[in-house]
Design a protein around this nucleic acid. Structure first.
Lengths: 193, 193
DNA sequence: CCCTTAAGCGGAATAAGTTCCGCTTAACCT
DNA sequence: AGGTTAAGCGGAACTTATTCCGCTTAAGGG
């Protein structure tokens, strides 16, 4: 069968390599931190050539995002179709707030990887998970503030969670995660005009 | 006299080299864009060794920030002690809005350099000009919203102007500078609760 | 004017990301 | 099963930022 010519299935050896690479990369990060994540080392640990890494993940930050995505898929599902207040069913403001708080936690959890990924390729986040966050938040903001430029406002709510800023404030300036969340809620409160 | 042991004056050859380097770097950017700004090329064009670049500017992004700062010093003066609405004399909200609009323009003007600088060293902006912006905005927000966490809110107002986000939206998504400014004003409007 | 010293200098050496290209082989068709 | 093809592979080569270190020289005191 299979008349629907799927976009060409991944070859089994390629799939095997992808798993080996991600496992090796995760091990290295666990053992030596993100700084230890060099392309040559990952390739060696996974038993493949560096060319294979690049074919599969594009570049260093692509690898980092792949590592991040593994953990993040369930979060995506949670805010799209999970239980409230993150998922549908709660009021708009509650959902926005819950979403921003959850994303803050997610970002803090993976701060080192995100930092590396955004530093190496600040655009990548925009092609990937960021777009999902932005689309979701746009939708909620549209409901919360009919007539406003939800597209731009969503960016404004997401921007304070950029990894470099967050890392700087949390690690170097004594700001706590709670203050960041409270600040976002404060910003949000203005929407209720 | 000079009893006040100034932090050791810059040697004249060093000063000469700094000027040569910045001039060469500016020329290269003008001619080949930011991508052409490689350390080796700048060194060659300035007639110095690469070691001199690093002694003087720390790293690639340090050089970019130096280039940016040359143009930005007058902006710093404008919002601290210039005429209203940017400088003192106007209402707080008007000043915040004027500041954000002006900073947007500044950022857009130097988008390429900022992009490179932040990519290479996302923290650097925080040690330098960013702190000045943040301190200023914090002060204004404190007046606008007594009792709020002005420190964190100032970050939230500044974050949407991060170069990578701005570049992405302006260049790849059809968002205009006006929409960005309007979005910031919209955010700000919430403060007037 | 000479001496001392530490800032400054140059450029080779190093390190890490990324590209390239000829070889291998899974997948599919007959 | 045998043939065809393009995805996938490996790793040497290349590019660029960054570090290192021995030499040079401006600055200032005697």
């Amino acid at each position: 069968m299979n008349l629907v010519t799927n976009p060409r299935r991944e070859r089994v050896d390629a799939a095997r390599n992808r798993v080996k690479i991600l496992a090796a990369a995760a091990d290295i990060v666990a053992a030596h931190g993100v700084e230890g994540l060099s392309m040559a080392e990952v390739a060696a640990a996974a038993g493949v050539g560096v060319g294979t890494l690049y074919r599969r993940f594009g570049d260093r930050s692509g690898l980092a995002y792949a590592l991040i995505d593994e953990r993040e898929r369930e979060f995506q599902e949670a805010f799209i179709e999970g239980p409230p207040p993150l998922g549908p069913g709660a009021g708009v403001f509650a959902r926005i707030s819950a979403f921003l708080h959850a994303l803050t936690d997610r970002t803090v959890e993976q701060l080192d990887l995100l930092l590396m990924a955004e530093t190496a390729a600040p655009f990548a986040r925009f092609g990937g998970a960021y777009d999902g966050y932005h689309a979701h938040l746009s939708m909620l903001v549209t409901q919360a503030r009919p007539g406003a430029d939800a597209y731009v406002l969503a960016d404004a709510l997401l921007a304070p969670l950029a990894a470099p800023l967050l890392a700087h404030r949390l690690r170097g300036c004594g700001v706590t995660v709670e203050r960041v969340k409270a600040g976002l809620d404060d910003l949000l409160a203005g929407f209720a005009t």
